[in-house]
């Protein structure tokens, strides 16, 4: 039963992200490129590998999915077009959607801004929490 549920979650992730993890050739450029690497328990290339092997449970438990800055450097630089960030985003959405209320709307943003916050963080926060 549990296994079935995981399998269907996996399918859902693949569908939402449009990513085919089998295209990965294990070069590790995504992890080599990732600015949030040291914050993460699982690293971008591991995300891809874990989705490919169906190890979704550990990913859903991990804080790593929130550490991704959605900078999309891995998507830009992956030589095989795997797009790890989209995968991470899909996993995150899978977790946040059922919760429902922790979305962010554009109106709430001004109050949350402080001067040191880089522009990219705001954009990626929108990417992360609007969905």
């Amino acid at each position: 039963m549990e296994q079935n549920k995981m399998a269907s979650l996996n399918t859902q992730i693949l569908r939402m992200s449009g990513v085919n993890p089998r295209k990965c050739m294990r070069c590790g450029k995504c992890s080599g490129t990732c600015p949030a690497y040291d914050e993460m328990e699982y690293h971008p290339h591991q995300f891809v590998h874990m989705v490919e092997t169906g190890d979704i449970a550990s990913l859903l438990q991990s804080e790593s999915i929130y550490k991704c800055l959605s900078c999309f450097a891995c998507v830009e630089r992956c030589p095989r077009g795997v797009e790890p960030a989209k995968l991470i985003e899909a996993i995150r959405s899978l977790k946040t959607r059922p919760v429902g209320q922790n979305h962010i709307t554009p109106d709430e943003i001004p109050a949350l801004l402080d001067e040191d916050l880089p522009q990219q963080a705001i954009v990626s926060a929108l990417r992360k929490y609007m969905k």
Partner: peptide, 22 residues
């Protein structure tokens, strides 16, 4: 090193190489 270089940044006469060691 098994892994790929993700980014190279020239800085103070050095090249900062960031890559993964899988």
């Amino acid at each position: 090193i098994k892994g790929m270089v993700g980014k190279i940044t020239p800085e103070n006469g050095k090249l900062k190489v960031q890559g993964s060691d899988l």
